[in-house]
């Protein structure tokens, strides 16, 4: 038994130098990993915020595009127009597909609540109240210093946009609009929706980060110039 103990018992622990070396190596690795994970987390948070913004921006533009395509008329009223925020109230009139006459016209009211950072689409006659396009935006569990903002929600007739986005195909729109017919201009609209994401510095050494992105689309309202619209107008004239 003694022999066994002598053979298998090892009392040579780490030397001080070995232990110090191990501690230093582990400390460097842990520090490196922590820095890497923190940078990765920051990058992931920003990236996630931008993806969320993309999803919402594309959703809103798609829904409004769809609404305009089905519409026979649209009315735009500017609600907010200052140096940083431009918001329009948009009412799109469409025909009820079950009746296709003016007596059963539906109005889709598009409204923006800048405080709640939400775009609402309400159908009149009212079906289910004021509907947020995406109730899950902005995300409920944002970090400290994080917030989203709607900077612009506008709809402009062809050639009447107040400031065209840089490097876009609408840059020369105003020039081109001089040669276009009124029927074309009155049925061609530009949707512009601008979202911003802010990430304020909270801790010492943090850096603020702001990101702004525009989502836009052009729509040609076919129904405004199609026989369906004309038959409605003819019906109105007769009724008048």
């Amino acid at each position: 038994m003694r022999l066994m103990n002598r053979l298998y018992s090892k009392d040579e622990g780490w030397t001080f130098v070995e232990a110090m070396l191990a501690v230093v190596i582990m400390a460097i690795m842990v520090l490196g990993l922590t820095v890497m994970l923190m940078a990765f987390r920051e990058h992931l948070d920003r990236s996630w915020a931008v993806r969320t913004m993309d999803q919402y921006g594309n959703d809103v533009v798609e829904r409004l595009t769809h609404s305009l395509r089905n519409g026979i008329n649209v009315q735009v009223n500017t609600r907010i127009n200052n140096y940083s925020i431009k918001i329009d109230d948009i009412d799109v009139t469409a025909l009820d597909p079950m009746y296709l006459d003016d007596a059963h016209a539906i109005t889709n009211r598009w409204r923006v609540n800048t405080r709640a950072v939400q775009v609402y689409a309400e159908e009149k006659p009212k079906k289910s109240g004021l509907n947020a396009v995406d109730p899950l935006f902005p995300p409920k569990r944002l970090g400290r210093g994080e917030y989203f903002e709607i900077k612009r929600f506008t709809l402009s007739e062809y050639g009447k946009d107040r400031d065209s986005p840089d490097g876009s195909i609408w840059e020369n729109e105003r020039l081109d609009s001089w040669s276009r017919s009124e029927t074309f201009k009155e049925a061609t609209y530009l949707i512009r929706f601008v979202l911003a994401y802010h990430r304020n510095a909270i801790n010492a050494g943090d850096k603020s980060w702001d990101f702004e992105k525009e989502y836009n689309n052009r729509v040609y309202m076919r129904n405004k110039n199609l026989p369906i619209r004309k038959s409605v107008e003819a019906g109105q004239d007769q009724a008048g």
Binding site: S181, F184, T188, N225
Partner: peptide, 11 residues
């Protein structure tokens, strides 16, 4: 495409 369609349609 919307622009071109609009042009062909009315202008």
């Amino acid at each position: 495409m919307e622009y071109l369609q609009g042009r062909i349609h009315t202008d």
